[in-house]
Each structure stands twice: as C-alpha cells, then as structure tokens.
Simulated scan of single mutants.
Amino acid sequence: MILPIYITGHPTLHSPAEPVTEFNEDLAELVENMYETTVAAPGVGLAAPQIGIGKQAFVWVYANQTAAPARGVAINPQLFIEPIQPGGTTEEDAEGCLSFPGVKYQLRRSPRALLRAQGLDGKPYELEADGWFARILQHEYDHLQGTLYVDRLAEPFSSKAASFYQDNKWGSENTKWTPGEAH
C-alpha cells in the first residue's frame, strides 16, 4: 500500500524516533508499504517518521552500489561517518527529500559511512557505504534524529529553502502528499 508522506511541519519529522521493540508481521507490513511508497514517489529512501510513524526504521531502494542489496531496511540503526571535509559544494552534492518535495539543494556530506542496524528478523548487521549510497544512509538516518536535510543547509541554500517553505505555506502537521495522486 502506498502511504501518504508528510511534509515538513509534522511533529514526527522534527522529533527523535523511538526504538523498534517488536519484530513481527506488523513491522514487516510497514516495511513493505515503505518500499512501495519509495518506489511510487519515486525516491531512493524513506524513513518511518516521513509517514508519521516515530519509529527508528528506514528503507532504501538503490541498486547503484555494491555494499548492500538494492533494497534494504535499517531498524534501530547507528551510523558512523568520516569527518566531512571543509570546502564548498558542487552540483553533485544536490539532494532532495520527499518531505521537502519539489527542489534539490547542495549539501556537503561525508563520502563514507558505516551502518550498524537490525534487519526485519531483529538480527544485527553491518555494512560500509561510500559515495551516493553513503549520502542516502546519512539522509535517512537524519530523519530518525528529527533532522531534515534542509536543516543542515548553508547559505545561500538555507535562505532559498526558507523562501520555498514560505511560498508553499508548509508547516501544518496535516500537510502531506501521496505518491501517484495530484498535489
């Protein structure tokens, strides 16, 4: 089932998520729905807070890497990154977000990440990622901390994002969109 995605302003997007404690059929169904929603959006990842569920879980759908399956889930993750090197951003650093739809802004991220998480069965796993996949993991992990990528932007992109936010009159906890429906 394709789920509605909340746009910035919904409380779960701006609060740290709670750990997942039950690994059961409900969790498996939620994760499957998150995969479907990600593909329909289209996106490369989705965190539970983006659909209004304040739990520590995110999915990715990204085949252009060798560190992990093209489709995966991270439950109760920990993420370790290399320090971000100083310097400016380039067009290659532009990323977007399903909870801040319609634009992409340049954000400097670490080129490498180490993810420790649990799978759907509750068993722990670890993977190393680099490049764009490392960026995806950092972006989705941020959602579990209550941070959107636009919260990390430097000038001039932070001002552009603030203007885009105001122009769209976002900020209500009821502002959402459903992939596949006109919005």
Results as ranks from 00 to 15, higher is better:
8 T>H: 13
183 H>K: 05
113 A>P: 00
20 V>W: 08
137 L>G: 06
111 P>Q: 03
20 V>E: 07
55 K>I: 15
89 T>L: 03
173 E>D: 15
141 Y>F: 15
163 S>Q: 14
61 V>M: 03
101 P>F: 06
159 S>P: 00
80 F>H: 08
33 N>Q: 08
133 F>T: 04
11 P>F: 11
111 P>I: 00
112 R>K: 09
150 V>G: 08
136 I>Y: 12
170 W>N: 04
82 E>H: 08
124 P>G: 08
165 Y>T: 03
67 A>S: 15
81 I>K: 01
40 A>R: 02
12 T>E: 11
87 G>H: 05
62 Y>H: 11
161 A>W: 14
181 E>D: 14
126 E>D: 08
175 T>F: 14
23 F>I: 00
74 A>T: 10
33 N>L: 01
96 G>V: 01
101 P>R: 01
172 S>C: 01
153 L>C: 12
8 T>P: 00
118 Q>L: 15
18 E>F: 11
141 Y>M: 06
38 T>L: 05
146 G>Q: 03
179 P>R: 00
95 E>A: 08
112 R>G: 06
141 Y>L: 01
42 P>G: 05
105 Y>E: 08
106 Q>I: 02
77 P>A: 07
8 T>G: 06
8 T>C: 04
153 L>H: 09
44 V>W: 14
60 W>Y: 15
82 E>F: 05
99 S>C: 03
160 K>G: 03
120 L>V: 09
11 P>Y: 14
102 G>A: 12
101 P>C: 03
46 L>Y: 11
146 G>K: 01
161 A>M: 02
86 P>H: 05
26 D>P: 00
62 Y>P: 02
46 L>D: 13
152 R>F: 15
20 V>Y: 05
88 G>F: 07
126 E>K: 04
49 P>F: 14
126 E>P: 00
124 P>A: 12
53 I>N: 05
109 R>V: 05
19 P>L: 03
130 D>R: 02
115 L>W: 10
43 G>M: 00
116 R>D: 12
46 L>N: 11
1 M>W: 12
90 T>R: 02
103 V>P: 01
63 A>M: 06
144 L>P: 06
113 A>D: 05
112 R>L: 09
95 E>Q: 10
96 G>Y: 07
76 N>V: 05
182 A>W: 07
90 T>H: 03
143 H>K: 01
10 H>K: 01
142 D>K: 00
111 P>F: 08
137 L>I: 05
25 E>T: 07
136 I>A: 09
178 T>Y: 13
80 F>V: 10
159 S>C: 01
132 W>R: 02
163 S>T: 13
42 P>N: 07
126 E>G: 03
152 R>A: 13
106 Q>D: 04
74 A>C: 14
108 R>Q: 12
161 A>R: 00
81 I>D: 13
36 E>A: 09
144 L>S: 13
90 T>K: 01
135 R>S: 10
37 T>F: 12
180 G>H: 09
166 Q>W: 06
25 E>D: 13
131 G>N: 03
112 R>Q: 13
109 R>K: 02
166 Q>D: 15
9 G>S: 14
127 L>H: 10
127 L>G: 02
173 E>S: 12
44 V>C: 12
3 L>N: 06
79 L>F: 15
12 T>F: 07
115 L>M: 08
176 K>F: 15
4 P>L: 04
114 L>F: 14
172 S>W: 10
14 H>A: 14
